[in-house]
Nucleic acid binder design. Sequence first.
DNA 1: CGCCTGCTTCGATGAACTTCTAATCAACAG
DNA 2: CTGTTGATTAGAAGTTCATCGAAGCAGGCG
Lengths: 129, 129
Amino acid sequence: MSKQVLPILDAGMDVSGAACCAPLVCEPLSESEAAELAPLFKAIADPVRLRLLSLIACHEGGETCVCDLTAAFDLTPPTISHHLKVLKQAGLIDSERRGTWVYYWINPAVLARMSALIGPASPALAGTA
Amino acid sequence: MSKQVLPILDAGMDVSGAACCAPLVCEPLSESEAAELAPLFKAIADPVRLRLLSLIACHEGGETCVCDLTAAFDLTPPTISHHLKVLKQAGLIDSERRGTWVYYWINPAVLARMSALIGPASPALAGTA
DNA sequence: CGCCTGCTTCGATGAACTTCTAATCAACAG
DNA sequence: CTGTTGATTAGAAGTTCATCGAAGCAGGCG
């Protein structure tokens, strides 16, 4: 692949050290932060990509062959490949060719960062409707 | 408003009882679940809406006047109004007119559900890059 | 009542996105 | 080497989306 994967998630922003409160409800997002984070959510803001991510995450061994993913949808292989590319460019998944087949696995750190961003400021708020 | 707000989040799926693991990494999302969840992420998959949500969530008192939101962007009032409508139809925020101004506040339950969905299966995974 | 301000709706336009078919690349079997 | 299968890329068609200007609605003030 000639185009390089964008380093949307780097060491600059920690994931595990989210501590108590979500960034989103602590202080307003800056324009650049929002511009950096929006593509991550856009990557999973599609039914097909959401299911792809779920299928890859749930698969035993933590990785899934593209052929298994393609079989789960009523879509053509190029379309699945396109969606996988979107997820990969967002940094949500990674892939490797191993012989005939290509395997994909998820990058939990990016998902964890997204989850922490929109997560409740305190556990008490989670149940408040 | 003639169009009714879609009940994307209802009592059918609990939020606080997510227990240990995120739905996404426990078992694959069904087609209908994905179709139901994707619009929620699509609603926040935009830099402007992400900042709007953040501004509303961070504002003291928990609610914000539209005039304050409009002032924070280089966009025309109709555009801000459009984004607020998208967030409202997704169930992420709610609003009320009080005299001259309209106030918006966030619905933490929907955000919490989304966070739980993509959240790490176990705390140990969060730090794994 | 008449006007003004705050916010929303309407209609249009240009960009982005999803999906397809056709073609190409990569690995393996005969 | 040649053919076959798995996966991606290229290009195109149809749809959705973000944004704007103009117009409309709601509430307060003189």
